[in-house]
């Protein structure tokens, strides 16, 4: 089974850890970025800095540059997100059976488990692998994070989309595709609060084998900029989103203790060995 990957080059945070976690398992990595280093919303992106990080990781020459024109300001950011991913996915599909589509702030904790699940997904005829990630909201101390959880603090899987798809898959929205998926979770019942409680679970893996998604683990300046270039910029650019995030980072215990009282946004405090992670 031949596996390639594509990454959207935009954010240097956790990029080295992310690529390094699956580098030796893939044949080729397509680096997709806007040739003018501009985001989907027209803000500048540190593409050159990211490419320097990639060059340090790419010891075997697996990375292939695929610049394009993705800052289409007459389109919405999510539309541009899907457009750029589709172009990158098609480029990565050449000669591949499966294509990984991890974001650059997602780090595989156990590539052995991930690729065992991918092999199984391939055997049973799935067209996508939904592999659970743990969504980290903020770093509150060395090795200590606020993580999205169930209402009562249980583990919650997060699925921003399939982490791997068959080559040539047509994406619907961002990473998502309407194809038969092999779905892995942390429990025999669905643990993703955003999903139906009876969503099928085909395989169970330990939390320690998850993909760590350092989604909002950033310093304040980067976080402000990230909200500007994100595909979800419309929702994230509201001032209260940043204020709430900063306050929760400052008062993690209060955040956890009041979680059950909120209708959504549930968190728990967890220890995550560093690296990966560390000071954003």
């Amino acid at each position: 089974m031949r596996v390639t990957a594509y990454v959207l080059i935009a954010d240097p945070n956790f990029l080295a850890a992310s690529l390094g976690s699956y580098y030796r398992w893939v044949d080729r990595i397509v680096l997709s970025y806007d040739r003018t280093a501009t985001s989907w919303t027209g803000t500048p992106l540190p593409v050159a800095e990211c490419l320097d990080v990639v060059a340090a990781v790419d010891t075997e020459g697996k990375c292939v540059h695929a610049p394009g024109d993705y800052a289409r300001l007459d389109h919405g950011p999510l539309e541009n997100d899907t457009y750029q991913r589709q172009a990158a996915l098609l480029a990565a599909s050449e000669g591949a059976d499966w294509v990984l589509q991890l974001d650059t702030d997602e780090v595989m904790l156990s590539p052995e488990t991930f690729f065992a699940s991918l092999n199984r997904a391939d055997e049973v005829g799935a067209a996508a692998l939904e592999y659970p990630s743990r969504w980290l909201y903020a770093r509150v101390g060395p090795g200590r994070y606020l993580e999205a959880s169930s209402r009562l603090g249980g583990v919650a899987a997060s699925y921003p989309g399939p982490m791997a798809v068959r080559s040539g898959t047509r994406l619907q929205l961002a990473r998502q595709a309407a194809v038969p998926s092999y779905r892995v979770d942390f429990r025999f019942r669905n643990t993703d609060p955003a999903n139906r409680h009876d969503a099928p679970v085909h395989e169970v893996v330990a939390e320690s084998a998850a993909i760590l998604h350092f989604s909002w683990v950033r310093d304040h300046d980067t976080m402000r900029r990230k909200f500007g270039w994100s595909g979800h910029t419309e929702a994230y650019s509201q001032p209260q989103v940043f204020r709430r995030w900063a306050a929760r980072q400052l008062h993690p215990r209060r955040t956890v203790l009041t979680s059950a009282l909120r209708g959504s946004d549930w968190f728990r405090l967890v220890d995550v060995p560093e690296p990966p992670g560390g000071e954003p």
Binding site: V124, P180, S181, Y182, F188, R189, P200, V201, H202
Partner: peptide, 12 residues
Amino acid sequence: GTNTLIGLALPN
């Protein structure tokens, strides 16, 4: 259920 996988025994 066109998006279901075929002939699998689930962990539940």
